[in-house]
């Protein structure tokens, strides 16, 4: 998958892959109609480098599992339908909207949420430090998703141009409009603003 995931690319991808972007009643009915046993539902996820056994319903989204079963509430659900990017996490290093990814489909993937990007000694990731320096978050509800998209970008492209950064971040909505400060944060984290 292209690491520079934009919302448009993502939505296209979901449509063409047939993946479920579910919310509300349809999601729960889908679960009710399955006959999956408890043994089949129990999966072990690789989340932030740790093995996490968890009981996962067949149509359960990764955002739901992270927030409500693994207590990783740093991942936010802003829209629950692939529009805002607040729930962005990394799957094998690639940003994905976790509200639109089925947990059962990521059993063999490395999941990284915002709780997993600090260094082992607890130091904030360079992106997080840069966002602090730029005072980038306003309300902060989109911030975890912004962090994850920026981390993915800099992992694949350590010194992006401002336009490359803009494109890479464009799948993350910020209702407060703090885009310029997040973008400055990406450039700062890449060492291009000091």
């Amino acid at each position: 998958m292209n690491p520079q995931l934009t919302r448009r690319r993502f939505i296209k991808g979901v449509i063409f892959s047939g993946a479920a972007v579910t919310t509300g009643t349809g999601y729960y009915l889908a679960n009710a109609q399955t006959g999956q046993s408890a043994a089949e539902r129990l999966v072990t996820l690789n989340v932030n480098g740790r093995s996490r056994p968890v009981d996962v319903l067949p149509s359960e989204t990764l955002a739901y599992t992270l927030r409500y079963k693994l207590d990783l509430t740093g991942t936010k659900i802003g829209c629950n339908r692939g529009e805002c990017g607040a729930c962005t996490v990394l799957l094998d290093g690639v940003p994905n909207y976790s509200c639109s990814v089925l947990t059962q489909n990521v059993k063999d993937r490395a999941v990284t949420s915002v709780e997993g990007v600090r260094s082992a000694n607890g130091t904030l990731h360079a992106v997080q430090q840069a966002f602090v320096a730029e005072n980038a978050p306003q309300c902060g509800f989109c911030t975890a998703g912004q962090v994850m998209s920026a981390v993915a970008l800099l992992n694949s492209n350590p010194r992006p141009t401002r336009d490359e950064a803009l494109q890479a971040m464009s799948g993350n909505l910020c209702r407060c409009g703090a885009y310029e400060h997040y973008l400055n944060g990406v450039m700062r984290a890449s060492g291009q603003i000091v």
């Binding site: 949420s113 709780e115 602090v132 980038a136």
Partner: peptide, 22 residues
Amino acid sequence: DFTPPDVEGKVSGEIKYAEDYK
């Protein structure tokens, strides 16, 4: 300039919004 005390919680995901409580 100064860093408001909740900024780190926002970039780390540790700050709690209403829906984050159980």
